[in-house]
Each structure stands twice: as C-alpha cells, then as structure tokens.
C-alpha cells in the first residue's frame, strides 16, 4: 500500500510517516500542496491514499484537494485532510470539494487507523 503525506511541518511528516509505515504503507512526502501535486503523475497509479494538511505555503490543502478532484486521473484517490482546523464550516467546506475524511490534530495513531478504515483503505 502506498500513501502520500503532504504537510509543511517536518515533525508532522515524521509522525504521519511513522504511523503509516507501522500500518504497512510505503510513504512519500511533500512539504506543500504544489510539491505534492507535482509528484502525482509519478505516484498516482499506485497511490492508495493521500493525507493532506490544510494550512501550507504555495498551495494549501483545500486548493490541492480541489485540483485533485478536478483531474480525471486523480479523482478517485481517497484524500484524508489532517489539520488543526476544527471549525464546523471548514469541515463542511472540505467535504463539499470532495474530502474523503477529516482528522483533527492532535490525534492518536488509533484515530488515524480508524479514519483509514472509514475511507476503505484499511480493514
């Protein structure tokens, strides 16, 4: 299984990568939405899930998600937003443009595993 983690925080990339590797994923990382989007042509064919932060420089997670959902080649990849944004309106906004699930920081490894089960990537 393959996952792409997009987050501008080095610490968060490490945490997410560690948990995902424990769950059996091969993990690629990017530090903003633009870098992540540019990696997609290479990765998309084998990608099972994308985890993306909301607030990042260059291209934020919301803009990234909109781009991904517009593109036929990437449209079906499950995208889990992993963000400290916990406003109900923001969560609704993410779902409106096609988020598969939404996980609020801070979170536990178990919570991440359960979200991956909810989007059908695990379990």
């Amino acid at each position: 299984m393959n996952a792409l983690v997009i987050d501008d925080s080095t610490a968060m990339r490490l945490i997410l990568r560690g948990i995902l590797q424990d769950l059996g994923f091969e993990v690629s990382v990017a530090s903003d939405g633009l870098e992540g989007f540019e990696m997609l042509p290479q990765l998309a064919a084998k990608l099972n899930v994308i985890l993306v932060d909301w607030n990042m420089p260059n291209m934020d997670g919301y803009a990234f998600l909109r781009q991904v959902r517009k593109d036929k080649a990437y449209r079906k990849i499950p995208v889990l937003m992993v963000t400290s944004e916990s406003d109900i309106k923001k969560i609704q906004k993410a779902f409106a443009v096609g988020a598969s699930e939404y996980l609020m920081k801070p979170f536990t490894a178990e919570a991440l595993r359960e979200k991956l089960e909810l989007v059908g990537v695990l379990g």
Binding site: S86, D87, I88, I91, Q92, F95, A99, E101, Y102, L103, M104, P106, F107, T108, E110, A111, E114, K115, L118
Partner: peptide, 20 residues
C-alpha cells in the same frame, strides 16, 4: 473532547450531530 470525536466517527456525522 476533540480527541474523542476523532475516534471512529465519520466527520460528516460529527458536523451533522454535534455542536462545538
């Protein structure tokens, strides 16, 4: 708490049935 609603609850149900 936020940690508890992160656990197993689809976020679409969170925004539908919970108020912050």
């Amino acid at each position: 708490s936020q940690l508890e609603v992160n656990r197993g609850l689809p976020a679409q149900l969170l925004v539908k049935y919970f108020k912050r």
